[in-house]
């Protein structure tokens, strides 16, 4: 989880300088993947876009985990509501919404993604918390009438540890959600460079006029998918 959280810093990285007169250069030692149409070094752009995408996914996953934890702990009476919300994949809701609004800016997209992923984390989270809920430790806390701040202080690290096991699946769902929206031209605007945005620019020309940046972006997505594959993903968290 830590290496994923480290990419939160990627959201603060500055944009690369534009140099249109150096646009479309072929790969050289100085520019290993050449330059894009606006003269930015393609390799640096790929690194920056990847870092921002990973950081964005980490922020969404953190939000989803926090909300999922709350739903699992406090929302037991509303499991039917979470079940109905789970039956609609996040992208099936986000794609038409983004199309109707001509794209979603980064902040609303992050909030929506986090909130839509959270119900998918609720069942595995509830399964993890249920044992504790029926344990003598929790019964003692309630019998002794411990105040909420002290209960939170004692148990929130443990609860967070339970939630952290689900971080990779939430992270992947957020990463692919943002990448898909951006690749379809419905994500954040040009100010927010990301892997999906790179794919949106490069995919249409891959068949006829491929650039090293296009192939590198595809390879980066594939490498990310393969290196981040969790052992067992909770069903439905697609």
């Amino acid at each position: 989880m830590r290496w994923r959280l480290a990419f939160l810093g990627g959201l603060l990285l500055p944009d690369l300088a534009l140099d249109p007169f150096q646009g479309g250069l072929a790969a050289t030692l100085r520019h290993p993947l050449g330059t894009d149409d606006l003269g930015r070094d393609a390799f640096l752009r790929l690194l920056l876009a990847s870092a921002r995408s990973l950081g964005f996914a980490s922020a969404c996953a953190l939000l989803a985990l926090t909300v999922g934890l709350l739903l699992a702990w406090r929302g037991r009476r509303l499991v039917g509501v979470w079940s109905a919300l789970r039956s609609l994949p996040p992208l099936l809701f986000l794609l038409p919404l983004a199309a109707a609004l001509d794209g979603l800016p980064a902040l609303p997209l992050g909030l929506l993604l986090g909130l839509l992923i959270a119900p998918h984390l609720e069942p595995p989270m509830r399964a993890r918390l249920e044992g504790f809920r029926h344990s003598p430790a929790w019964a003692a806390e309630r019998t002794l009438g411990a105040p909420w701040p002290s209960i939170l202080h004692r148990w929130s690290p443990w609860a967070w540890q339970q939630a952290v096991a689900l971080f990779p699946s939430a992270w992947l769902a957020a990463l692919w959600g943002e990448a898909t929206l951006s690749a379809l031209g419905l994500g954040p605007g040009p100010g927010q460079d990301s892997l999906g945005r790179l794919l949106a620019e490069e995919l249409p020309r891959l068949g006829s006029d491929p650039s090293p940046l296009g192939w590198a972006a595809l390879a980066a997505v594939l490498a990310l998918a393969w290196t981040s594959t969790p052992g067992r993903r909770p069903q439905g968290a697609a």
Partner: peptide, 12 residues
């Protein structure tokens, strides 16, 4: 890999 990658590879 996400769906968009398979579509991208097919296009490429």
């Amino acid at each position: 890999p996400p769906d968009l990658l398979w579509a991208g590879l097919l296009l490429a």
